[in-house]
Design a protein around this nucleic acid. Structure first.
Lengths: 215, 215
DNA sequence: GTCTATAAGAGGATAGAC
DNA sequence: GTCTATCCTCTTATAGAC
């Protein structure tokens, strides 16, 4: 992840504690605003208001709206991929995938804004993360497809295409964050109940894991 | 779908053939632009340019950007739900679901803009279709959950929650349209090949249908 | 560091000629 | 019906006082 000039340049810019706190507050607020409004829909005013700062003061910390957006995205991507990277080729296939799906569902439930931010970026043509997708992510996915293919070869999984399995997991898990409005509208009372997330996890795991068990 | 004043008011506004053609051209162009740029990101200029019209001329046909957006969405929703409504309670469960999933994947492949437009609308809080989701769609989904539950009761499907099965189908099928950029970036050469859509359909059907078969 | 004021520009919408 | 010109609002970004 390209983080050319953040807190590294200690020599030229020793950021104070308040400065770091302010930057973080801005990025947190920006995540929410960008997630629900998209890049164009978001305004610096809205982000500033959410942090209690004035608009020019916010631009004292980040030189442009674009820059805030990029940094929020970068920050988010790292967390986002961690559980995917953690899939262990040596582990039990079904158990590894169960762990991965569970982790992603938990992220969708606890930080839906992160998922929405990412969805927005891709939906609009991935102007910022496009090259990241074509390099880092592509390599990572290629690696994991090999792992899955190996599992299939050993007879530990049904013969499914690794790419589509991965896409399916991404789709289902992120859907609960990205389309939460629709889910709440449609499932109504059900979606409000406390155990709903767990119920979702149960259902997704049941279907996918049953679907890929060798028979 | 609320279509209070479209081509119904024949008495006050008998639209000519060219008028209808122009309106349609505008709505087609608008679908593309709104889908890739979102409501805020889209400009009347961009839509006008795509139709070869001038901005004011476009506003002769529709009185505001908002109005164009609403009509594009309404128009899209009808097509979007047709295959869902068509799920037949009397049919064979697995066969009905196979037909539905296949139809949705085909729509994602042939008209990804429609899916993206809808995704955008939901992602941003469903400002226009919110009430539609809470009424018409909710009722429709409730009806279909009963059908699925009935199938489960008869032992024709594994005991899965109907809501989550429906969400899963929506998620996976629409993912191929909404995230096509990511899919192409990650799957690279694979995604370019002619049989890719069919391969995707095969994989999705295999996993979901295996996942819900009674055992 | 944080504010008020304002420049600069994009984009939605209208007026009015043709 | 379609165009050119224009108005006006919203938003990004900067200048400069405190």
């Amino acid at each position: 992840m390209n983080q050319t000039k953040r807190k590294d340049a200690k020599a030229s810019k020793p950021l104070s504690r308040i400065q770091e706190a302010n930057r973080k507050a801005i990025l947190d607020a920006a995540l929410d605003v960008f997630a629900t409004s998209g890049f164009r829909g978001a305004t610096i005013d809205a982000i500033a208001a959410r942090t209690g700062m004035s608009k020019p003061n916010l631009l004292y910390y980040f030189k442009s709206k674009q820059q805030i957006y990029q940094q929020v995205l970068e920050q988010t991507l790292e967390d986002w991929l961690a559980p995917f990277e953690a899939i262990d080729p040596e582990g039990d296939p079904v158990e590894e995938l169960r762990r991965y799906i569970t982790a992603k569902l938990e992220m969708s439930s606890k930080r839906p804004e992160a998922s929405k931010l990412f969805a927005n970026e891709i939906l609009h043509g991935a102007p910022v993360v496009g090259s990241f997708l074509e390099t880092t992510l592509k390599d990572l996915v290629t690696e994991k497809t090999k792992v899955i293919r190996h599992w299939v070869g050993e007879g530990k999984l049904a013969p499914i295409d690794p790419y589509h399995l991965i896409f399916m997991i991404w789709a289902t898990t992120q859907h609960y964050a990205d389309f939460d409005i629709q889910i709440r509208a449609v499932a109504g009372s059900q979606a409000g109940r406390p155990g709903f997330s767990e119920q979702a996890a149960q259902a997704v795991l049941t279907i996918i894991l049953n679907g890929i068990k060798p028979r």
